[in-house]
Amino acid sequence: MPAQSMKTSFEGNGRLRPQNIAEMKAVFARLCTEQGFRNGLSFQPQSTDILISPYVKNGTTWMQQIVHGLRTGGAMDFDEILQVIPWIELAYDMGIDLNGQQVAKPRAFKSHLPWDLVPKGARYIVVFRDPVDALASMHRFLDGWMFEKGIISLADYARTILSQSHGWWEHAVSWWRQSQRQDVLMITFDQMKNDLEKVVDQVADFVDSDITASVRHIACEQATFDFMKEFEARFDDHLLRERRDEACGLPPGGVATKVAKGSSGDGFTSLPDDVLQLLEARWAKSMFSEFGFKSYSEFARRVDERSLP
């Protein structure tokens, strides 16, 4: 939940961006205002709406592109994908009316909320990714934007995330409790990497089973790494940074990218033993304790089995 606006220790001392964890947390807390967050929580979706609600860095933008391609036949006339698939937690702060007309049907929205908080009444798509890979991806995304490039290590960032009560694990628990619901489509990041065409078909059937084969093909082609890399600026949150950097106390010109060839397992090789132990403990306390999943790979297999036709 966002915090009230506060003065950060680095403002006014000549530094460009946060230099440590405490400063980064203070800045990040100002990305979304209390009023904006409450506005998102109170949103009343329609039964035909699609809410894409993975945890951060779990393939959200990738899934947005798939859904938008399927509902428009491949329209790319947007400067930033958040313009056509609004982020409900930040729409108010971005000056976007969640009830405004969208460019195509069904309406589609982005969120990172767990099931317990996400507005009810829509249809939902959730993507799961190995939490260590997602953590490493988020660190890369914030490096040079929310903190001075290279100043905060992956290990220190991981320790910070693991010290918080809510994270990937609680998000996954919240959504997996809904695994029997027919209005929730669950996909894994590895599925998207390994068989994009199949995933696009699954999403198409979920969004509108009448979507033609030719539109499915276009949506698949426009969700490939090469295509999204070519149009990278449309997926890099530059409008978000332009609108919210000043509110966060950040200078303009930060660099952040979302289009990358997402890795699997690389995060483990660059984390020290104490962080790996914390990760194991967090998994045991959440996914193993409630569902008996011994590892992410075991959980991912169950997600993949669930998504089979």
Rank of each mutant, 00 (worst) to 15 (best):
I151C: 14
F225D: 10
N194H: 06
A219S: 14
L162M: 09
E246A: 15
V184H: 02
A158Y: 03
R159L: 08
Q182R: 07
Q191I: 05
V215G: 11
V173E: 12
F235V: 10
Q178E: 12
F206C: 11
I152A: 07
W176A: 11
R159K: 12
F147W: 15
A172C: 13
P251Q: 12
S209D: 12
A223T: 09
M228F: 02
E246M: 09
A247S: 09
V184R: 04
W175K: 05
M186W: 02
P251K: 09
W169Y: 15
I151D: 02
A158D: 02
L240K: 10
D226T: 07
F147G: 08
A247P: 00
S165N: 07
K149S: 13
G253R: 07
D208S: 10
W168Y: 13
A213T: 13
L239N: 06
L250N: 00
V173W: 02
A247D: 13
D190T: 11
G249L: 11
W169F: 15
H171A: 00
A223W: 00
D210H: 11
L239I: 14
M186Q: 11
I152K: 08
T160A: 02
V203R: 04
H171F: 01
A223Y: 00
L250H: 01
D236G: 15
K149M: 07
W169L: 12
R216H: 04
R243W: 04
H171I: 01
F206P: 13
W145P: 03
Y157Q: 12
S209M: 11
S214V: 13
E148T: 10
F227M: 05
D143Q: 02
Y157L: 05
L185R: 04
H171E: 00
V199H: 01
A247T: 07
P251Y: 04
W175D: 09
A223N: 08
E246C: 08
R216S: 12
N194D: 14
W168R: 07
D183W: 02
L142W: 05
W145M: 07
L162D: 01
K149N: 11
S209A: 11
I151P: 00
E197I: 15
E242A: 15
L154I: 10
Q222V: 14
P252N: 07
E221M: 15
D156R: 05
V173L: 14
L239D: 12
Q178D: 01
A213Q: 13
F206M: 11
K198N: 14
V215R: 09
I211Q: 03
Q202W: 09
E232I: 06
E246W: 01
R241G: 13
W145I: 08
T212W: 01
E170Y: 00
E170T: 03
D143K: 02
P252A: 12
L250V: 03
K193P: 13
R234G: 05
S179D: 01
D205C: 06
H166C: 08
F235T: 07
D205E: 10
D226F: 04
S214T: 11
M228W: 01
D210C: 13
E242W: 01
F206E: 11
V200E: 10
I152T: 10
H217T: 15
Q164T: 03
K149C: 05
Y157E: 09
Q182F: 01
R243H: 14
Q222E: 12
H238D: 14
L154M: 08
S179G: 00
M146E: 09
I161V: 15
S163V: 01
M146P: 02
H217R: 15
M186E: 06
G144F: 06
T188I: 09
S174G: 05
L142C: 10
